[in-house]
Write a protein that binds this DNA or RNA. Structure first.
Length: 198
DNA sequence: CTATTGATGGTC
DNA sequence: ACCATCAATAGG
């Protein structure tokens, strides 16, 4: 069993500085660790979405390089945390080399340390609330004590499912790309809104 | 079970 | 005006 506290084997920069889709696939099973006032909080990643660059119309960076999207244009291995719908934070891992604005949204985790066993951590907003991720984490290194990811055994291919990303219907053909990955049979995967009929 | 809506605020 | 959401509510 992989260590899941702050002393575990942290994923290093080369892990992140690869294509977003690759990172999204390999992040499944890894452990997201956040330093809280009362110790570590952590969860095992069971659902991700890849946002593959500024040419991807579903990616915030498609709007250009702005104060908000600046972090995504930087090097991989940093946190992109944004605020949405006036209430929720969403956590992304920036991927690729500097200048390539790609990231992986973490959509669901399975609760581990520092959380009630029945904590709701399905859904990007819920997992941020449970783990205590806020805008204060935006731009932080993913190798920092405050926020990092710990290595863990990979999820076998037979248990990985793929489908369209959630809530990006405005993105034209990009909305249909199967860039959402999740662990089959996990009780902690978010369902998302009803699938559009074809 | 599905569908709808209100809360709420940053971005552009 | 638009949104990479969630919880509460109404309806079948």
């Amino acid at each position: 069993m992989a260590q899941r506290n702050g002393q575990g084997n942290r994923l290093a920069l080369p892990f992140y500085q690869r294509p977003a889709l690759t990172v999204a696939r390999e992040l499944l099973g890894k452990v997201l660790v956040v330093a809280g006032e009362a110790g570590w909080r952590s969860g095992r990643i069971v659902e991700t979405e890849a946002y593959v660059g500024a040419h991807d119309l579903a990616c915030h960076a498609a709007k250009g390089r702005t104060a908000r999207t600046e972090v995504m244009f930087g090097p991989g291995g940093h946190a992109y945390v944004y605020f949405i719908y006036g209430m929720h934070f969403c956590f992304n891992a920036v991927t690729g080399p500097e200048g390539e604005a790609a990231a992986v949204l973490v959509r669901a985790v399975e609760p581990l340390d520092g959380l009630p066993a029945d904590a709701r951590t399905d859904g990007p907003g819920r997992l941020c609330r449970q783990l205590g991720i806020t805008r204060a984490h935006n731009g932080l290194s993913l190798l920092s004590d405050a926020l990092h990811l710990v290595d863990a055994p990979p999820v076998p291919e037979a248990r990985v499912e793929r489908g369209p990303r959630v809530g990006v219907d405005y993105a034209g053909v990009w909305a249909r790309e199967p860039f959402r990955l999740w662990v089959r049979d996990s009780r902690h995967v978010s369902r998302g809104p009803p699938r559009p009929a074809r």
